[in-house]
C-alpha cells in the first residue's frame, strides 16, 4: 500500500478577465498515489493545463487545499515552492522549452546548476542521462541543431536529472509526429515503471488510453476518473469527505 502523493480537495481556480470570470477549475477533489500513471484528457479550455500547473506548484489555487507527500504546500512561500519543484517535480512541455544558447548537455544540467550541485557530480550524471536517452553524440549540439524528438528527449533528461518523484508532462507529444511521439511516451512510461509518478495531459485518446488511470475534464470539473479497462482502481487514496 502506497501513501498518497497528491491530495487535492475542493480546489478552485478563477481567472479574472476584465469584468468576467473564468472558472478554470471548479471544486476539484483528486488523489493520486505515488507511482501512478495518470492521463488527463478533455476538450480545449477544460482546465487541464491549469490543473497540471497547480500540481506542479507553478500556480496557486484560489481556495482549497493541496497536500504533496503529506505536506500542505499551498501555504509555502515562493522560494520554498521553488525548492520543492527543484527536488521533487520534473516538467516536460509541449514546446520543449530548451534554452536556445545552451547545448544539449548544458540544458540537461540546468536543474543541477540552479540547485547548486558541484560540477564534478553534474558531469557524471549528465553523461549517464545522455547515454540513457541515446544522445551521446548530440551532447554539444544546440537545440536548433536537434530534431523535435531529440529535443523532447533532452527535455525529459532534464526533467529527470534531479530524480524527482513526480513528472508532469503537458502535451509532450503535441509537436511531434506519431512515431516520434510514441517513442517519447515509451520513455516517460519507462520512468513510471521505475517508480516515478507520471501525469500526462493529452488530447490524443490513443495515447491517453495507455495510462492506467484516465481523468476526463470538462469546463473546469473532473467529469470522469476511471482506471484503464481491465485494471483495478487503487483504493489507497480515499477521497476526503
Amino acid at each position: 500500500m502506497t501513501a498518497p502523493l497528491i491530495e487535492l480537495s475542493r480546489i478552485e481556480r478563477v481567472f479574472h478577465l476584465g469584468d468576467s470570470q473564468v472558472h478554470a477549475l471548479q471544486s476539484i477533489d483528486l488523489c493520486i498515489a505515488a507511482g501512478e500513471y495518470v492521463a488527463v484528457m478533455g476538450p480545449s479550455g477544460s482546465g487541464k493545463s491549469t490543473l497540471l500547473n497547480l500540481i506542479g506548484l507553478l500556480d496557486r489555487p484560489d481556495s482549497g487545499s493541496y497536500r504533496l507527500a503529506g505536506r500542505d504546500v499551498t501555504t509555502l512561500s515562493a522560494d520554498e515552492q521553488a525548492r520543492v519543484r527543484s527536488e521533487r517535480i520534473g516538467f516536460v512541455f509541449q514546446s520543449f522549452h530548451l534554452v536556445p544558447r545552451l547545448t544539449a548537455a548544458e540544458n540537461i544540467a540546468l536543474p543541477m546548476v540552479l540547485a547548486g550541485i558541484p560540477p564534478a557530480q553534474r558531469g557524471e550524471r549528465v553523461r549517464q542521462a545522455l547515454r540513457d536517452y541515446g544522445l551521446e553524440n548530440r551532447a554539444d549540439h544546440r537545440p536548433d541543431q536537434l530534431s523535435g524528438g531529440q529535443r523532447q528527449r533532452v527535455a525529459i533528461a532534464r526533467a529527470t536529472i534531479m530524480q524527482p518523484a513526480l513528472v508532469l508532462a503537458d502535451e509532450p507529444t503535441g509537436n511531434l509526429d506519431r512515431t516520434t511521439g510514441e517513442d517519447v511516451m515509451r520513455l516517460l512510461e519507462d520512468l513510471n515503471r521505475g517508480g516515478v509518478t507520471l501525469i500526462v495531459v493529452t488530447h490524443d485518446g490513443a495515447l491517453g488510453a495507455r495510462a492506467r488511470r484516465q481523468l476526463l475534464m470538462a469546463d473546469g470539473s473532473l467529469q470522469q476518473d476511471r482506471p484503464r479497462s481491465g485494471g483495478t482502481r487503487s483504493e489507497t487514496c480515499a477521497l476526503p469527505t
Binding site: G56, L58, A78, D79, A82, R83, R85, S86, E87, F91, H97, V99, L110, P111, L114, A115, R158, M162
Partner: peptide
C-alpha cells in the same frame, strides 16, 4: 520571459 518561466519551473528561486 519564457526562459525565466522555465528557470522557475526548474526550481530557480527569485534570488537566483
Amino acid at each position: 520571459t519564457a526562459e525565466i518561466g522555465l528557470l522557475k519551473a526548474l526550481g530557480a528561486t527569485r534570488a537566483t
